[in-house]
Design a protein around this nucleic acid. Structure first.
Lengths: 133, 133
DNA sequence: GGCTTAAAAGAAAATAATTTTCTTTTGTGC
DNA sequence: GCACAAAAGAAAATTATTTTCTTTTAAGCC
């Protein structure tokens, strides 16, 4: 049995072909929005329903397998949960990349100034990628 | 004429009572979502339409007066555009606060590692505020 | 490998969120 | 005060998301 199915099992989700495809796409593309997810799925499962996509995405979020990334000025995308990272969005080509730099410094400083104890950070930076310059 | 109307004029928006109220609320609360905006508006303008809220919010975004803040796991809020800052969200009471610390360090580091030239940053941190501990 | 069953898929309807259209009203400059 | 472009409000339309219900299927068991 292939690894993607294992991943689903670990999260108590039945390894259906539709789910395996969703997770494979997340692995392949890194980030994907509902619309693209649906149109890609249609190629392999011509009768797949949008409700199936939504239900699966929500279950995967609940089970801690994926998370929604809300991006300013565009549609949300979904990604597999992995080590902490920030998102770079290219204003020109729309590409989204993960950057695994320590965000420890801002967090430390924000914690000190605000008195909050910080649990999670969501950082999105917009700019122009090297390819678009 | 009061300052809020001036602010609207500067952004080429007619100073209607409804718009003045929206901007006043943004000034008062700092952050507000569509639902709360609407229910507050209803108190003063019993026949205000949700379409008016949406149209105004969109015009204010286009004119550069306000921006949408997309927050993980909750509804978006809107805020007046001011100096760069990050958002602290309390997981316990839901409060949102602005923290004006320099985010320069993450940005610098991300720029170096990614090769992007960064134009804007959107940083949201979730945690527990001092009042909730 | 077939049998059972709880869970998932798909279809359609329902709900929620947002935008558009159209008519009436109003803020602003003259 | 007058003229007019722009905004408000009402309703309908569109888009996004969720729910309901029936059929199908993955997974454990023999």
């Amino acid at each position: 049995m292939h690894e993607t199915a294992e991943l689903l099992k670990e999260h108590h989700l039945k390894a259906t072909p539709q789910r395996i495809k969703i997770v494979s796409m997340l692995e392949e593309y890194g980030h994907i929005n509902i619309e693209d997810l649906y149109s890609e799925m249609l190629k392999q499962f011509p009768s797949v329903s949008l409700a199936t996509i939504y239900k699966n995405i929500n279950q995967m979020i609940e089970s801690g397998l994926i998370q929604e990334v809300k991006i300013p000025k565009t549609k949300s995308v979904f990604e597999l949960i992995k080590e902490p990272h920030l998102h770079m969005v290219c204003e020109s080509c729309g590409k989204i990349e993960d950057i695994c730099v320590g965000t420890d410094k801002v967090i430390e400083e924000a914690e000190r100034l605000s008195g909050y104890s910080i649990k999670e950070s969501f950082i999105t930076l917009r700019g122009i990628c090297p390819d678009c310059r």
